[in-house]
Design a protein around this nucleic acid. Structure first.
Length: 210
DNA sequence: TGAAAGATTCGCT
DNA sequence: GCGAATCTTTCAG
């Protein structure tokens, strides 16, 4: 009998959050997710990491993928909050997002970096590197470590699924804000959230000085 | 049907 | 620290 992801996670003091526990507003959700735990269940077992960096792409944001309306590619951003949106940038890097608004409204949160907690050796193998600080630092790296692919697009975060969000009893981290990374439009909006002082956060040191 | 841009990463200097 | 690689999606003609 295989142990479920929820049972395994419980051994680490994690409890699953349900969609109704999550804020239905992009910026609030982006901040809420900092310090929560991303849990991934697949054929090789259970992976988990504490989210230390996110970016908000709220409705009306000129930098967001949903700015031109709903298309086949970005349809998941228009699902009710708590759904998975996966896409590929620059040909190689996969990005993991969570839809963040009501059904029919385009909005999403990009999960940029995490601190590995469970399944660290699996992540090391997938990434081909040893340094724990670099296993899930940067959206493309995080996606590779957690084996994110298009099959997850359109599913929702929830216990029993391939992806869900967990919480533990640790005290809330100190959340800082900065401008977002790697965009050209609306580049001056402070919609990036990260754990102040964490070595698991991506981006230039200048932004993280906070 | 073609062209341009993009929520990045990696390797080399 | 900087510049190239890479390919899918979207928009224009």
């Amino acid at each position: 009998m295989r142990t479920s992801a929820v049972e395994t996670a419980a051994l680490f003091g994690l409890r699953p959050l349900h969609r109704q526990d999550l804020p239905v507003e992009t910026k609030a959700l982006a901040k809420f997710l900092i310090g929560k735990i991303l849990v991934r269940e697949d054929a090789s077992g259970v992976l988990a990491g504490r989210i230390v960096e996110t970016e908000a792409y709220p409705p009306g944001d000129d930098a967001a993928h949903h700015r031109s309306g709903r298309t086949r590619r970005n349809a998941s951003l228009f699902l009710a909050h708590g759904h998975v949106y996966v896409y590929r940038a620059y040909g190689t890097a996969m990005m993991l997002n969570m839809s963040s608004e009501a059904e029919g409204v385009g909005g999403g949160v990009l999960i940029r970096a995490a601190e590995p907690m469970i399944g660290i050796d699996v992540m090391r193998t997938r990434r081909g590197i040893d340094d724990i600080h670099r296993l899930a630092r940067g959206p493309g790296c995080l996606a590779q470590a957690f084996a994110i692919d298009f099959a997850l697009d359109g599913s929702h975060y929830g216990a029993g699924n391939a992806l869900w969000i967990g919480a533990d009893e640790s005290k809330p981290p100190r959340v800082a804000r900065s401008v977002r990374i790697g965009i050209t439009r609306d580049a001056d909006k402070p919609l990036r959230y990260f754990v102040r002082g964490s070595r698991f956060v991506s981006g230039p040191a200048k932004l993280n000085a906070g």
